[in-house]
């Protein structure tokens, strides 16, 4: 279970995250939705133990992120929105590096990598340098590297970006499998139809604050809208703005 209570993160004079609270239960996919710069990625990095909160309490499976970031990193799989990988290594070398640092037994590492490689059709890329691969292929490698240690908790920041439809579908099914096994998944995306499909509950984050939370159905009811995209635009006060912005752009071009 993930428990976030009054989480605040300040960068200079900017409050990127402003006192948010939410809970992710075991076996639940929690969607964190919000416009660019709303504080999603910062929140996710804190959950993954990468950056420290300024204040507030964050417990991941009972571990405090401020006190035990290393333990958190052992149980969490984090996929960043842009894959940051060693471009001069091959996927084989990269997976071996992760396996070595995480202390994954050789047989398990070999078995898991080969299964993921098969699923994401990466066989022909295994010995190529990561820097020479497409964005989507790098994203697949980033995904696999986050899953290699069989994490109890998954933090996925727009991790579907760049994936081809088949791989996206495989990942979606995989997440549902993980959910069924009782793992916690925090998931952010700008593809709201996807969030609607797989998230048990969503939190809409805006200007560093959670402005609405609940199941997709609850949010639709709350906002009196028919789909999640309209709910999102209404809640982030952007729905009425869109028409006038497009008009202004048209006139200026």
């Amino acid at each position: 279970m993930i428990e976030v209570e009054n989480l605040v993160k300040v960068f200079g004079s900017t409050r990127a995250v402003n006192g948010i609270s939410f809970t992710v239960h075991d076996g639940e996919i929690y969607g964190l939705l919000g416009p660019n710069g709303s504080g999603k990625s910062t929140t996710m990095k804190i959950l993954a133990g990468i950056i420290k909160p300024t204040s507030g309490k964050v417990l991941v499976n009972g571990l405090d992120v401020s006190k035990a970031p290393m333990k958190i990193k052992e149980i969490v799989g984090y996929v960043p929105e842009t894959p940051v990988l060693y471009e001069s290594l091959t996927p084989v070398e990269f997976f071996n590096l992760i396996g070595s640092i995480r202390g994954i037994p050789k047989d398990e590492l070999e078995d898991r990598v080969n299964r993921f490689v098969e699923a994401f059709e990466l066989k022909s890329y295994l010995h190529k340098y990561i820097g020479s691969l497409s964005f989507g292929t790098r994203q697949k490698i980033s995904l696999i590297s986050a899953l290699l240690h069989d994490p109890e908790v998954l933090i996925m920041d727009e991790s579907m970006n760049g994936l081809d439809p088949k791989s996206a579908r495989i990942l979606r099914e995989l997440l549902l499998e993980f959910k069924a096994e009782g793992r916690n998944i925090v998931f952010s995306t700008h593809v709201l139809q996807l969030a609607e499909m797989i998230c048990d509950r969503v939190g809409v984050i805006y200007n560093g604050e959670i402005i609405a939370e609940g199941t997709v159905e609850e949010l639709k009811e709350f906002a009196h809208e028919e789909n999640l995209e309209d709910v999102f635009l209404k809640l982030t006060e952007s729905k009425d703005e869109i028409y006038s912005v497009v008009q202004a752009l048209k006139e200026s071009l």
């Binding site: 990598v113 080969n114 066989k123 022909s124 010995h127």
Partner: peptide
Amino acid sequence: GTAYRGVFKARTLPGVLALTLKDFKVIFR
């Protein structure tokens, strides 16, 4: 370079050595 298809063979090392090996690969390549 060689772009042969194949299965992944795990070659793990203690963390310190794995990182040093990575450093040298990056430096040389």
